[in-house]
């Protein structure tokens, strides 16, 4: 019976993985899509309060974070190309830069949120409920939910990239088996594009 042990074939299909990743991205878009719908509805009802509340946010920090994410999207794409060109060191370096940029984004976010908390602006706070209008409460509620959920996705993306880097390093992911890196890149682009919409909605529209 020894040979009969578990011999199911390891089936590798890069195309299938890619389709799977795209389908997963659809679900993510719908997840955020719901939040965008909620934002649209409440902005329509409370447009003045939303305008007022948006003044609180620092569009400079937001812009810096946008640039950071855009650059990180470029580096992860370059990392994929380097893997196809069989340059392992460059692949790892570029993926590493992506990782660092992602962390910098989170650090910025941390200070942004921290500043809000210092001003007493967080869901359910006394300051919020006593001093601000309902529209402003909704704005900040949505701000924390949407940027929070986005930050969670950044963290997932970072873990994913770290895992792929390890696999590139050990040689499990290479030019002929690049699907995992390509798909992590796709996921990172998704995280990026969601931020591209979050940034103007919260920081820029007046």
């Amino acid at each position: 019976m020894e040979q009969a042990k578990h011999v199911v074939h390891d089936h590798y299909d890069a195309e299938a993985s890619k389709i799977g990743m795209w389908l997963f991205i659809f679900t993510e878009l719908l997840l955020f899509g719901v939040l965008f719908v909620i934002y649209a509805v409440y902005r329509y009802i409370n447009h003045e309060a939303f305008h007022l509340a948006a003044e609180e946010l620092d569009s400079f920090v937001g812009a810096v974070n946008t640039v950071i994410l855009l650059v990180s999207s470029m580096t992860i794409a370059m990392s994929t190309t380097s893997l196809q060109k069989k340059n392992k060191a460059l692949t790892l370096a570029l993926a590493g830069i992506t990782l660092i940029l992602g962390v910098v984004f989170l650090v910025n976010k941390y200070f942004e949120w921290g500043a809000k908390f210092d001003h007493g602006i967080f869901p359910g706070s006394e300051y919020l409920i006593e001093n601000l209008s309902q529209g402003e409460i909704l704005f900040f509620g949505l701000y924390f939910i949407m940027t929070g959920l986005h930050a969670l996705h950044i963290i997932i993306g970072l873990v994913l990239i770290a895992v792929v880097m390890r696999k590139v390093y050990t040689g499990k992911v290479h030019a002929e088996r690049a699907a995992l890196l390509e798909n992590s890149g796709l996921y990172w682009h998704l995280v990026d594009i969601i931020w591209i919409f979050l940034f103007p909605l919260f920081y820029l529209i007046h």
Binding site: I38, Y42, N46, P123, G124, I129, S133, Q134, G135, I137, L138, G141, L142, F144, I145
Partner: peptide
Amino acid sequence: VGVFDPALGG
């Protein structure tokens, strides 16, 4: 957070 709470504008 108030999204569905009428007391907070939801």
